[in-house]
């Protein structure tokens, strides 16, 4: 998985399978190799003193993992959870020490797409807050898929880098 992602990050292109999901009005893609599983919404225990986009932790079959709300992360309007709301469980981190598992809450998941390297466009340089997290765009027949660099999305989850928050 790592080598594939890295190859993509360096060249800006990596053909392969992507999981596409809906967030607000846009469609996003995560490389399928990073995705462990997709589960429905479950009870989330709020985790204090973590960045706001960290919704909390859940029990994933006996293992506790943090979940993040991608809407909050990208500064979008919050939305009520529905039956369609899913947690996409991904493995992030480039090496063993920093690797960990995290759930990403998305509005709904769509499909797994095979994208060839020719369909890629490098991410446009724009002053969007989410710009850093975008690995590139994939032009499909009738739409554009925003490909996320999930490692970068998660990179500031570590509370130690934020200082202690939340205490009065």
């Amino acid at each position: 998985m790592n080598s594939t992602i890295e190859a993509g990050a360096v060249a800006g292109v990596a053909g392969g399978k992507y999981l596409s999901f809906q967030l607000s009005r846009e469609e996003y893609g995560i490389e399928i190799l990073a995705v462990r599983e997709i589960i429905g919404m479950v009870d989330v225990t709020a985790l204090p003193r973590t960045p706001e986009f960290v919704l909390g932790v859940i029990n994933l079959r006996g293992r506790i993992i943090p979940v993040i709300d991608l809407r909050r992360k990208f500064g979008m309007e919050p939305k009520e959870f529905t039956n369609e709301t899913c947690i996409v469980v991904v493995d992030v981190g480039k090496d063993v020490e920093s690797a960990f598992r995290v759930g990403c809450i998305v509005d709904s998941v769509s499909e797994v797409l095979t994208i060839s390297a020719d369909d890629f466009e490098p991410s446009p340089r724009c002053a969007n807050a989410a710009g850093d997290y975008i690995a590139g765009l994939a032009k499909l027949k009738d739409r554009v898929l925003i490909l996320l660099d999930i490692d970068k999305v998660i990179s500031d989850i570590d509370p130690a880098t934020l200082g202690v928050g939340g205490a009065q």
Binding site: R49, T50, I64, D158
Partner: peptide, 13 residues
């Protein structure tokens, strides 16, 4: 159980 956060570093927990 670990909270699954990187470096397990939530202060106070």
């Amino acid at each position: 159980k670990s909270l699954g956060m990187p470096r397990d570093s939530v202060p106070g927990l």
